[in-house]
Design a protein around this nucleic acid. Sequence first.
DNA 1: TGTGTCGTGAGCGGT
DNA 2: TCACGACACA
Length: 822
Amino acid sequence: MIHGGDDIPFFDDDDDPARAARPEASGSGAKPGGLAARAMAARRQPEVPDYVAGLNPEQRDAVETTEGPLLVLAGAGTGKTRVLTTRIAHILASGRAYPSQILAVTFTNKAAREMKERIGMLVGGAVEGMPWLGTFHSIGVKFLRRHAEMAGLRSDFSILDTDDVIRLIKQLIQAEGLDDKRWPARQFASMIDGWKNKGLTPEMIAEGDARAFANGKGRQLYQAYQDRLKTLNACDFGDLLLHPIRIFRENPDILKEYHRRFRYILVDEYQDTNTAQYMWLRLLAQRPDGDGAPINICCVGDDDQSIYGWRGAEVDNILRFEKDFRGARVIRLERNYRSTAHILGAAGHLISHNDGRLGKTLFTEHSDPDEAKVQVHAAWDSEEEARAVGEEIEQAQRNGENLNDMAILVRASFQMREFEDRFVTLGLNYRVIGGPRFYERLEVRDALAYFRLTCQPADDLALERIINTPKRGLGDASVRKVHDYARARGIPMLAAARELSETDELKPKPRKALYDVVTQFQRWQELLETTPHTELAEQILEESGYTEMWQNDRSAEAPGRLENLKELIRSMEGFESMRGFLEHISLVTDTDQSEDMDAVSIMTLHSAKGLEFGTVFLPGWEEGLFPHQRALDESGRAGLEEERRLAYVGLTRAKRNCHIWFVANRRIHGLWQSTMPSRFLDELPEDHVEVGETDVSYGGYGQSRFDRSEPFSNTYATPGWKRAQSNRSDATRDNWGTRSGHAVERIGYGESGPKGQTIDGELVARSVETGSSRFSVGDRVFHLKFGNGNIASIEGNKLTIDFDKAGQKRVLDGFVKPVDSP
DNA sequence: TGTGTCGTGAGCGGT
DNA sequence: TCACGACACA
């Protein structure tokens, strides 16, 4: 029997199905008015419960198919969350399980929060009784705190974030006597992350991988890292899944307890699961032979929206579901409640170019002849693109649309800047989603380090972070001494500092400083049990001189930092203890943006997943940017398909209007480069797309697009489209022409030039550029954007040109043509 | 301990 | 081009 702590409010010991089926008789402590009680009350109503009544037949099927493995393929905007939450409500209300017998996992805290709220709304009341609804990681922590000793940890272990991990690895690399520039800690951190995503411990990694890093010391270094974590009584994110997996494997009795506990398992966004998460789920879902009980696992996801392969997600998990779970049912939700038929038609046709899909076709029952088609626009360069989008937005605003209901979804974050600049000029409100995060700010991390060390005296990383912040005269030399002393004796640095401050190994000044800081931490640790945690937090920042440090700081950021510290303390109020708070923030990195202001959202396509907007702008549909060249280079065909799914995600965010843009010239890494329209544009069906004619003016001179008489034409035969097409054919000559867009071009992107390799193995490519010696200084050349000019200098294939009108620019030599000298 | 200079690298980023 | 980190130096 698993004895949870106080975190399981009720029914913790009630694992008997018979009792579960008639909880009224169980006499266990269902609180009157609690979730379970309400749910049970709902169960007694004979007719179709309200919560099922509003569902369409497929949704209802997904809700009511409670027994056995079930895959719900839920397309964009088909009511996925509704199905998940209603399903849980149904399981509860029909008395099939108690809240504590349902394991429901999501990827993000946001999704978990939303689910809790919505279940609460369905069954009426807070969902305190769902202790096992959370992210993979938060549930992993819960397992691990219970069985920490099985992983060689104490139950108060710390959870390190990426920054801590990199600092730690850097120390290890240096300790190995390796050059930390040749072997960057960041790179090794991401290698470890990759291994952990695949569920690989040091002894399991491939020989080649082990050799690839640190002069063949990869495995040794990974092992050293794990050992170090253990002495620090700490875990990284990967361990939160890996430790439980190992514990379950090595202790069948423990696993069995969880098998008995969890009657129903639900997984959200299954297409995003990585191998480790998959193993974790398999262990929990797969009861041992002979048990006979069905595996009640329900995974919800959409293979077409799998966009996190680069983070370790295995689309294959969802594609394989029916094989993995014998007798699995698959229910498709294809009835879309979000977008117009044109948007769905465009998105559906685009995604049909992918192989390896489970296959779904979204449709809507609400179609209106007035609905706008998806609009494709061309612009001369990114500046004009931003200007034109700004105008569209202002126009929509004049038509009564809310800025809150509009979004610009970019492929890469550098694209955002141009829009921001433009909107600042226009005085148009905007918000950037997914910028620097609250908990990653310097001052917040410093403050957290103080709190961490108070709660967990073995947290050396926290100590190293703040031992000399504010300045106490404890420089590198002193810290090194503490470090070495601690390592030599195998004790935490704080303890080492205490001992050192009592010897005369240090000079009087640092010794006194060390003594003072150690004594302070000792006091705070004692206060931990008696003082309210927000008060203590304030006291720590006050007494340590940390607040004062920023008060004395005259820099522009200082007031904001003090404000953030206040905000941090305020945010602690909702938690029971400092430990509870630390646990929360170590797992939560998202901060909700306020929606007080009416503003256009600017974000990446990745962060747009799950959101919807009335009008969506999708700029930058050019080869090299979208699909991104690196995705193609690194992952070939699979990379292209993931990019296409990303395009699909972008399109399906739109409810009513969707505007796609591509430009003829884009500045990348400071160099102007000609670009070709994205192959994805060719993959949009004509029936659902309109090509807008945009005036492509030279560098912003000449007419504006307001001068256009006919804004849109119904065909691909508009001048803008033709021009785009001819750009493409010029660039690729006879190599282009596969309508399905399988040829890869590297033209005008990156400096690598043609590599003669494609994602299909077809030969590609040639580049417009033909080597670096075609020109010489002084040559007269013509550039499409800047006009005529003379070459001032040449650096490889980069030319610095003094243009007659545009001034000096640096461009790639592929984009200029020689002109006969006058 | 802070500041200037050089070099490098530049896709998406949750837990 | 630009932004960040690492280093040298005062």
